[in-house]
């Protein structure tokens, strides 16, 4: 895929379908398998939903920028917003064994990507960096 692919959507949930479609196609184009591409689609959707909920507090008038990059080693997704600062540890999460509504999104993100991190250099807003290694040996090394 010609690098990178960048899309910007309004922070309204009705545009999440656009991000899902782009994420699925970008993952497929860079050679990931069907199941992996579905996981990527799901993870990017959950991450953008988190931006709307946590960074923008459901303000639908803001912007979310999603960048997809294909390198020899990995498929990378960067999600940027200009909302409230988020920290992974502040995002609602629950143990998978604990059955209650909410708190699952981060599990789906971590299922699809080997590295999930916020760019601490970004001053205003958030830049979430997601990396999926193509080679499982590199993925194991990243753990």
């Amino acid at each position: 895929m010609d690098n990178p692919i960048v899309i910007t959507i309004p922070s309204h949930p009705k545009y999440l379908a656009v991000v899902r479609a782009a994420a699925l196609l970008a993952a497929e184009i860079c050679g990931l398998g069907a199941a992996e591409a579905e996981d990527i689609k799901h993870a990017v959707d959950e991450a953008c939903s988190n931006v709307i909920k946590y960074a923008y507090k459901c303000d639908c008038t803001r912007k979310i920028t999603v960048k997809f990059e294909d390198t020899q080693e990995s498929f990378q997704v960067t999600i940027e917003d200009s909302g409230n600062k988020a920290r992974l540890e502040d995002i609602k999460i629950r143990e998978l064994d604990e059955v209650r509504p909410g708190g699952l999104g981060i599990h789906f993100i971590k299922k699809a990507f080997h590295i999930v991190a916020f760019d601490k250099k970004k001053r205003n807003g958030n830049r979430l960096l997601l990396t999926r290694y193509k080679n499982t040996d590199e993925a194991a090394l990243s753990k």
Partner: peptide, 13 residues
């Protein structure tokens, strides 16, 4: 065709 964590949360609730 697709369900996210908000859909799952709806069923759990």
């Amino acid at each position: 065709k697709y369900i996210d964590s908000s859909g799952i949360a709806t069923f759990v609730e």
